[in-house]
Design a protein around this nucleic acid. Structure first.
Length: 201
DNA sequence: GGTAGGATGGGCT
DNA sequence: GCCCATCCTACCC
């Protein structure tokens, strides 16, 4: 991994349109691997994600219907769903599926590509680049993603996702999701094989 | 190398 | 009042 200036990164990238997100949750969860998440001066390639389905997926926040917290999940796709977990960490999801249908993609790990110095300042416990964003609570801290960004349009910013032309080919590994009890055997976690920035083997 | 336990606050019953 | 889509530290091999 070589760090890239943000200006060059953005010049080589194209922000994903809403149509990217207006698709089945599992498709987006797989396809988001290798894309680049940009916020301010910091950016990282998505290397791990999980699908949270509508309907009978009881692990999803949307399973109990529309509340103040889950409203954005039922809205138009291509928005950020950011929530607080365990009182201290924020988690970032992409809202997918057409409006009126629930579906989320949890972003679980990034490979940092820009703004490493800033990320190390925000992540005091990190000793090496692999520690910066290898977990859903770590990456939001590294990129300063908070609930203030809940509902943010990912095609307009300030938080955006872009194509990443430098990404070499990779294999996708499928496993069960991490940290849940309901539907624990559903294979809805995806990550880039052999990538050292994923949260867990 | 590994893991047990605690921090901490909002959402929902 | 209980449950979390987690992380860090201390401590133990």
């Amino acid at each position: 991994m070589t760090e890239l200036p943000l200006r060059q990164l953005l010049a080589e990238s194209e922000v994903l349109p809403e149509s990217f997100y207006r698709r089945p949750t599992i498709e987006v969860a797989k396809d988001v691997l290798g894309k680049v998440l940009v916020h301010g001066r910091t950016a990282g390639i998505v290397v791990e994600a999980e699908a949270y389905l509508g309907g009978d997926d009881l692990a999803s926040h949307s399973a109990r219907g529309i509340t103040d917290r889950t409203r954005v999940i039922f809205g138009p796709p291509g928005r950020a769903y950011v929530y607080l977990i365990y009182g201290m960490y924020e988690c970032l999801n992409f809202v997918v599926e057409p409006e009126g249908h629930a579906g989320c993609v949890l972003i679980r790990a990034l490979e940092p590509v820009s703004g490493l110095k800033t990320m190390f300042e925000r992540r005091a416990a990190a000793r090496k680049p692999e520690d910066l964003a290898s977990g859903p609570g770590k990456l939001t801290r590294a990129l300063d993603i908070t609930r203030k960004l809940n509902g943010c349009n990912l095609s307009k910013g300030p938080l955006t996702v872009s194509e990443w032309t430098r990404q070499p080919g990779f294999e996708t590994v499928t496993t069960t999701r991490i940290g849940i009890t309901h539907c624990a055997d559903w294979p809805l976690r995806y990550y880039i094989r052999d990538n050292p920035f994923v949260s867990k083997k």
